[in-house]
Lab assay of single mutants.
Amino acid sequence: SASLEDVKTAVLGLLVILQTKLYTLPASHATRVYEMLVSHIQLHYKHSYTLPIASSIRLQAFDFLLLLRADSLHRLGLPNKDGVVRFSPYCVCDYMEPERGSEKKTSGPLSPPTGPPGPAPAGPAVRLGSVPYSLLFRVLLQCLKQESDWKVLKLVLGRLPESLRYKVLIFTSPCSVDQLCSALCSMLSGPKTLERLRGAPEGF
């Protein structure tokens, strides 16, 4: 439990870093931090981490990651405290083949985003970082199938509809809506759902 406290501190630090690096160059920093966060949550489900502190780590990670939004130009952003989304000039939600690297070039400044813009690109060529939603999407499927803490599952179920409104997140990387529907149906009809959940409301 003591070591998990250190892990929790590290994860919180990564969330803060991602919130900053999403809007700064090099964009590969945001890509790497995002991948680290998603990989860490995957390990929770792989090794069945069920301690309360592990659940709190997942809760905080999902609470942040499910706020990711994308505009029509595929640029990622996060809402501010007033709910207004600021889109990044440097990070996009497109999935890119590994051989192309985590970044790609664009020939010049991008068109203005639909929300308040981030800082304008400084040079004639900007390297865009790929932060594909499919990585998070796979972890969300694991959550629906394996999550043991009701608070975490409730958060994910509550945030998913709003995330799905931003269709560009889903359609720019390999996210299977069929698998999502299947996971939701299995969660509702499967007898093991109630068996594994802690803290579920009576009558769920």
Results as ranks from 00 to 15, higher is better:
residue 1 S to T: 09
residue 1 S to E: 15
residue 2 A to T: 14
residue 3 S to D: 10
residue 3 S to F: 06
residue 3 S to E: 12
residue 6 D to I: 01
residue 7 V to Q: 02
residue 8 K to F: 06
residue 9 T to E: 13
residue 10 A to S: 06
residue 12 L to Y: 09
residue 12 L to K: 15
residue 14 L to D: 01
residue 14 L to N: 02
residue 15 L to N: 10
residue 20 T to H: 15
residue 21 K to G: 01
residue 22 L to Y: 02
residue 22 L to N: 02
residue 23 Y to F: 09
residue 23 Y to H: 07
residue 25 L to N: 10
residue 27 A to S: 12
residue 28 S to L: 08
residue 36 M to F: 03
residue 37 L to D: 01
residue 38 V to P: 00
residue 38 V to W: 04
residue 41 I to W: 00
residue 42 Q to S: 14
residue 42 Q to A: 15
residue 42 Q to G: 09
residue 42 Q to F: 10
residue 43 L to M: 14
residue 44 H to P: 00
residue 46 K to W: 08
residue 47 H to W: 08
residue 47 H to N: 12
residue 47 H to I: 05
residue 48 S to I: 07
residue 48 S to T: 11
residue 48 S to M: 10
residue 48 S to E: 14
residue 48 S to K: 10
residue 53 I to V: 12
residue 55 S to I: 07
residue 63 D to N: 11
residue 70 A to G: 06
residue 72 S to K: 15
residue 73 L to D: 08
residue 75 R to W: 03
residue 75 R to Q: 07
residue 77 G to M: 04
residue 80 N to I: 07
residue 81 K to C: 10
residue 82 D to F: 09
residue 82 D to K: 09
residue 83 G to L: 05
residue 83 G to R: 07
residue 84 V to T: 11
residue 84 V to D: 12
residue 85 V to R: 05
residue 86 R to L: 08
residue 86 R to P: 04
residue 87 F to V: 05
residue 88 S to Q: 02
residue 93 C to A: 06
residue 94 D to S: 09
residue 94 D to E: 08
residue 94 D to V: 03
residue 95 Y to V: 12
residue 95 Y to M: 09
residue 96 M to T: 10
residue 96 M to E: 11
residue 99 E to N: 11
residue 99 E to Q: 11
residue 99 E to S: 10
residue 101 G to Y: 14
residue 101 G to E: 13
residue 101 G to H: 15
residue 102 S to D: 14
residue 102 S to P: 14
residue 102 S to Y: 11
residue 107 S to F: 13
residue 111 S to Q: 11
residue 111 S to N: 12
residue 113 P to Y: 13
residue 113 P to N: 13
residue 115 G to Y: 14
residue 116 P to I: 14
residue 116 P to R: 13
residue 117 P to Y: 10
residue 125 A to W: 12
residue 128 L to F: 15
residue 128 L to E: 10
residue 129 G to L: 05
residue 130 S to Y: 14
residue 134 S to G: 06
residue 134 S to W: 06
residue 138 R to W: 05
residue 139 V to D: 03
residue 139 V to S: 08
residue 140 L to Y: 05
residue 141 L to C: 07
residue 143 C to F: 01
residue 145 K to L: 12
residue 145 K to N: 10
residue 147 E to G: 00
residue 150 W to V: 04
residue 150 W to L: 04
residue 151 K to D: 15
residue 153 L to K: 01
residue 153 L to V: 07
residue 154 K to I: 04
residue 154 K to H: 09
residue 156 V to K: 00
residue 157 L to T: 01
residue 157 L to P: 00
residue 159 R to V: 05
residue 163 S to L: 15
residue 164 L to R: 00
residue 165 R to F: 06
residue 166 Y to G: 06
residue 168 V to S: 10
residue 169 L to M: 11
residue 169 L to K: 04
residue 170 I to M: 10
residue 174 P to N: 10
residue 176 S to M: 05
residue 176 S to A: 10
residue 178 D to I: 04
residue 178 D to V: 05
residue 179 Q to M: 13
residue 179 Q to W: 04
residue 179 Q to G: 08
residue 179 Q to F: 05
residue 181 C to G: 05
residue 182 S to L: 07
residue 184 L to F: 01
residue 185 C to N: 04
residue 186 S to T: 13
residue 187 M to A: 03
residue 192 K to Q: 14
residue 193 T to Q: 08
residue 193 T to N: 07
residue 195 E to S: 11
residue 196 R to K: 09
residue 197 L to W: 06
residue 197 L to G: 03
residue 197 L to T: 03
residue 199 G to H: 14
residue 200 A to H: 09
residue 202 E to D: 11
residue 203 G to Y: 06
residue 203 G to W: 05
residue 203 G to V: 05
residue 204 F to W: 07
